[in-house]
């Protein structure tokens, strides 16, 4: 229950951090808040040769509005994002989902970008990024690229990040869900990993965009048009539940997960429509 021997590197700038990644590649891991990575190190699920600690890099600590995007730097904690004065106004969905991320004590150190980098299929922040169609900013020595949420997360704990790249920020479109946003999840204890999580925002022309986490290997999104009849909607949700499949683990069976999709998705659509009125 202790990390294997490793080198600890604490760069002062993002440039130094990517230089470290260029040198160590797959042997290095970026440490930000450590709320997933440190547990994995303690359990020896990962044994990197080097840790690159970016938590003290000032240039990664900002939350800012850039055009129509909200950009959250890689060292910003979940607690800091939750306390951002403009969160409710510009990102009402995240304001609802973020209190479900871990616990008070883990949000104090866990970062927004770290949760997205970790890419747990049941996590709230990857679900938020997928639902709001945000993007991930990846930097390496050879430059910077922006990947859409759907391009970034490729599977369970799998992303399109190259070994020499680090996430410097994630970008959420501002003002999505201002006409309605809702989030729900089922877990054994509030703050524990969700068995199934669902989020939804009001989209154009009365449609509702829904994201489901914890069932497939990554969050999945569907659109529910306003014109859909109740029985068509039920069919659509039924199809979604079977498409996502679900997985068995110690917390729940695949069948139970599919059943939660059938029950939670109609509720969340109703909640979004109720706020839109």
């Amino acid at each position: 229950m202790k990390p294997a021997p490793l080198s600890y590197i604490r760069p002062d700038t993002a440039e130094e951090a990517v230089a470290g990644l260029a040198e160590h590649g797959a042997d290095a891991r970026i440490l930000a808040g450590g709320q997933s990575l440190m547990a994995m190190l303690n359990l020896r699920l990962v044994e990197p040769k080097a840790l690159i600690d970016i938590s003290q890099i000032d240039e990664l600590r900002s939350i800012r509005i850039d055009g129509n995007m909200i950009e959250v730097g890689a060292a910003v904690t979940q607690a800091e994002f939750l306390a951002w004065p403009q969160l409710k106004e510009h990102a009402p969905f995240i304001a609802k989902a973020l209190p479900w991320v871990g616990h008070f004590q883990t949000r104090n150190r866990g970062t927004v970008c770290g949760s997205i980098a970790h890419a747990d299929p049941s996590s709230e922040l990857p679900l938020s990024l997928a639902l709001l169609e945000g993007e991930v900013v990846l930097r390496s020595k050879s430059g910077t690229r922006h990947l859409k949420a759907s391009e970034f997360q490729t599977g369970m704990l799998q992303t399109a990040r190259r070994d020499d790249e680090m996430i410097t920020a994630v970008r959420f479109p501002a003002d999505v869900g201002t006409k309605g946003a809702a989030f729900r999840e089922v877990a054994r204890r509030h703050g524990d990993f969700a068995i199934v999580s669902v989020g939804a925002v009001a989209a154009d022309q009365g449609a509702v965009r829904v994201a489901v986490g914890g069932v497939a290997d990554r969050p999945a999104c569907i659109g529910i048009e306003a014109s859909l009849t109740v029985s068509d909607m039920t069919d659509r949700i039924e199809r979604l539940a079977w498409e996502l499949g679900g997985y068995d683990d110690i917390h729940a069976s695949a069948r139970y997960r599919r059943d939660l999709v059938r029950r939670l998705v109609p509720i969340i659509i109703g909640e979004v429509r109720a706020c839109a009125k």
């Binding site: 709320q35 303690n42 004590q105 104090n108 150190r109």
Partner: peptide, 13 residues
């Protein structure tokens, strides 16, 4: 000043 898990932090940090 901020409550956090000391098992998820390195001494060098």
């Amino acid at each position: 000043g901020v409550a956090a898990r000391s098992c998820l932090m390195l001494a060098v940090q």
